[in-house]
């Protein structure tokens, strides 16, 4: 049994897509998305999106990495295996700065990538938009707006008419199992 999963409309260029995004936001759509081959500047404001929280995730994980780095070195050189090497104190922190820094960067970078994938829900090989053959153009030169059926403002006929009124072309009903 095929269900209606959403609607997809194509737009001509970044300008019409951005214009449509503003209209969708004003009409009260909450989870609609604008698909484009590259990020379009100003689209976040047009869609009414808040700033990405990834910076905070990276910051927290990077600091964790640094703490881990200095912690391992402290444990190994002071607690587990205290040896006097070239007459330096067990906790010669100046020499530990580099590994601390390396782990700061390493965990920060993993946080950026894993955090980004997690928030974006990737990898996700199934999605309503993939039921459209026309959608393949998004990674070449196509600009699309998709509205999923779980959006509170979604109503198949009204949304379709609305898409048409803001300049959408090739409007498709996304149907799948």
């Amino acid at each position: 049994m095929n269900k209606t999963l959403g609607l997809l409309a194509e737009f001509e260029n970044p300008a019409t897509l951005m214009n449509a995004a503003e209209k969708f936001r004003e009409a009260g759509y909450k989870t609609f998305d604008c698909h484009s081959p590259f990020p379009i500047h100003g689209m976040d404001e047009a869609m009414g999106l808040k700033r990405s929280p990834i910076g905070y995730i990276v910051g927290a994980m990077a600091v964790t990495g640094a703490a881990l780095g200095i912690g391992i070195q402290y444990y190994a050189s002071v607690v587990a295996y205290p040896h006097i090497i070239s007459g330096k104190p067990f906790f010669s922190w100046q020499a530990y700065v580099i590994i601390t820094f390396a782990l700061f960067i390493l965990l920060g970078a993993f946080a950026a990538v894993i955090g980004m994938l997690k928030i974006n829900g990737l990898p996700r090989f199934y999605h309503p938009v993939f039921y459209s053959d026309n959608f393949k153009k998004f990674s070449d030169d196509g600009f699309f707006v998709s509205v999923e059926s779980d959006d509170p403002a979604f109503d198949i006929d009204k949304t379709k008419a609305f898409m048409d009124s803001v300049g959408g072309k090739n409007i498709e009903v996304l149907e799948g199992e």
Binding site: D33, M47, G115, M116, L122, F130
Partner: peptide
């Protein structure tokens, strides 16, 4: 490609990352 679909809700986090 991990199922990338180029939505601006993805691009936003992608660009920040």
């Amino acid at each position: 490609a991990l199922g990338w679909r180029g939505g601006n809700r993805q691009w936003k986090h992608y660009e920040q990352a």
